[in-house]
């Protein structure tokens, strides 16, 4: 369960970071992998700071209503951004 939460949280952070790709005019090949690494680092930092993954795990197990809502929101946002990213072949995450 915790592993799932870590993956969901990290995907969410990376998705938000990838918006930089959409905004940035000058895109290079190394930008995406670097953003992924930064996303993982930020995700781990958020876990230490505010237990992001724990909240997601609490949401995934339906332990708490707030955590569940947060997790659904994170999943929905990540899904939308990922879908847009794939559908537009990397041009945009949010419309």
């Amino acid at each position: 369960m915790m592993l799932t939460a870590v993956i969901v949280g990290t995907m969410f952070v990376i998705s938000i970071l990838f918006i930089i790709l959409q905004i940035a005019r000058d895109r290079r090949a190394w930008t995406a992998p670097v953003l992924v690494i930064i996303g993982i680092a930020i995700s781990l930092f958020l876990e230490n700071l505010m237990s992001l993954h724990t909240w997601i795990a609490l949401g995934l197990t339906f332990t708490d209503l707030g955590a569940t809502t947060l997790t659904i929101g994170i999943l929905a946002s990540t899904a939308v951004m990922t879908w847009n990213f794939i559908a537009t072949r990397g041009r945009e995450l949010v419309r």
Partner: peptide
């Protein structure tokens, strides 16, 4: 769940906003 009501409320609000944002998108 009763032991962290503030965090739970914040999580609920943030989650709701994210859901609405995703629906708008």
């Amino acid at each position: 769940s009763t032991s962290y009501p503030i965090g739970s409320v914040i999580a609920f609000i943030v989650g709701s906003v994210l859901i609405i944002s995703a629906a708008l998108a």
